[in-house]
Amino acid sequence: MAIDVSEALKALDNPARLAILAKLKEPRKNYPEQDVDPDEVGVCVSIIQERAGLSQSTISQYLTALQRAKLVTSRRVGPWTYYKRNEENIAAFLKELHDLI
């Protein structure tokens, strides 16, 4: 799955989205209140929203932008949606960015 560097840069050009992606790097540390395994399943959007202190619609838009850039993946479990970093694509993005500059 090729990563679009421009799309990824657009997604990261927002302090809140960048902070969400950074916190998802260590989900057990940053979201300890979650019941399911965050390394396997991801972090529930409601917990991300609570921690970020932003509205649900804003968080949804931010996570959609990160997902469109292929930097995170989502997984539905019942009525909840969980997000986690796509480490393979993040590494590919960093490599492509490094090769460009």
Rank of each mutant, 00 (worst) to 15 (best):
T73N: 08
A19H: 14
Y31P: 10
R51Y: 08
L94T: 02
A22P: 09
P38F: 13
P79D: 02
R28N: 10
K23C: 08
D39C: 14
R17S: 06
C44D: 13
K84T: 00
G53S: 09
E96K: 10
F93M: 04
E40N: 13
D35L: 10
V43Q: 00
Q49C: 14
N86G: 07
L18I: 15
Q34H: 01
L21S: 04
A65F: 00
K25M: 12
L63H: 04
Y82C: 05
V77D: 06
L94H: 03
E87K: 12
A19V: 06
N14L: 03
I59T: 03
P27I: 04
L21T: 05
A69E: 10
Y62D: 11
V43S: 02
Q49E: 15
Y31K: 09
P38E: 00
K95N: 12
D35R: 11
Q49D: 11
N89V: 06
R76H: 13
S57A: 10
I48T: 08
Y82A: 00
D39E: 15
S74F: 04
P79C: 01
A65Q: 00
L94P: 01
V41M: 04
E33A: 10
V45F: 09
L24P: 04
P27H: 07
D35Y: 06
G78P: 04
V41Y: 09
L54D: 00
S55Q: 04
C44V: 15
T73P: 01
N89G: 08
E87Q: 07
T58C: 08
P38D: 07
T81P: 04
N86T: 10
